[in-house]
Simulated assay, not measured.
Amino acid sequence: MANAVSFIKAITIATAFILSGVFSGTLSGTVFADESVLSYRGDAFSLDGSTLLYTEHHQLTYRQVSSDSDKAVNEPISRITRYQDANTQEFAVKENTYRYGSATPEFNLTDTRYGYYEEVTYENDRWRASYREPTEADKGKLGKPDYTPVIDSGFDEFVRSVWPELMDGDTVRFSFAVPSRLEWVNFRLIPLKNENGTLTVEMRLSSRLLSWLLDPVKLSYDTETMRLLTYRGLTNIRDKNGEGIQAEIRYTYPD
């Protein structure tokens, strides 16, 4: 049972990193002529919708490039996400850089309330992960993923890359990097419904034997813009006891 608890804790930390991506944000503050910046926010409420728990503030930098169909697409460059409590006090910062593919950004996260830090980097042709918290720390190389590798906010870019399959109702599998386990964890992304301009998908652990460890996470996307609208489930933000918070996060974008 101890291993199960440890696994749940690790997935708690991992799942909400999935909801952090819609293109990307600059770390240095410098934006070049061919780059654009998108700023948006997420408001995390209790599951009954009565209480604002915290907010996410995303600053994203991207460039437009031509795709195979000669249609311009947004390519992520970098991002910074700041987390604030309900009293607007900042407590965590996450940085991403997209040097090795839109679905696999390097990243680091610092939560000052718990002294928690984790990162994933690419060095010498290998993905490496590390984490540090008050009671333990570890680092190591990630092995070979079973499916398409996805790291942190690269999840949102991954969703767009498999958009046709999801719109056709097909389940998609991917391997998600979990630094606190120093390994890839396999997930299924399952389309639930497509109506009124919204695509709703459900994320589950790929192993049906282990799926009981984590309640499904539900995400909804705008079918026209492919932007994330809501995330409902376990987040990476913890309460005063260090346990993951269940929340519904609602995203708003500039006109």
Rank of each mutant, 00 (worst) to 15 (best):
E95V: 06
E133C: 01
S20M: 10
A14V: 05
E243P: 00
Q64D: 13
A177K: 00
T198H: 13
E56Y: 08
S69Q: 15
F187M: 11
Y40T: 04
R79N: 09
P149A: 11
I77Q: 08
V22C: 03
E195L: 02
V162T: 05
F158D: 01
G25K: 04
N241T: 08
V162K: 03
R160K: 15
V185P: 04
R232K: 15
N87S: 13
G169L: 14
T110R: 10
W163Q: 06
V217N: 04
H58R: 05
V185M: 06
D156S: 15
L229E: 07
W212N: 04
K141W: 12
N3H: 09
T230V: 09
D152Y: 08
Y122W: 15
P191Y: 10
S24K: 03
A103F: 03
E183A: 14
K141A: 15
D68C: 05
Y122P: 14
S20L: 10
I77Y: 01
E119P: 00
S36D: 06
V159Y: 03
N74H: 06
A92D: 01
P254N: 13
T88C: 00
R188D: 13
P164K: 05
V120W: 09
G244H: 08
K139G: 05
Y116I: 07
E75N: 04
D222M: 00
I13A: 14
E165S: 09
E119H: 15
G42K: 02
R113I: 07
P179N: 01
K144P: 00
P145I: 11
L234K: 11
S46H: 04
S153E: 10
D239R: 09
M203W: 07
Y147F: 15
G242F: 05
T235S: 14
P105I: 10
S211W: 09
S66Y: 07
E224I: 08
L209M: 12
S161A: 13
L52E: 08
V178R: 02
D111V: 09
G169D: 06
A129G: 14
E157W: 12
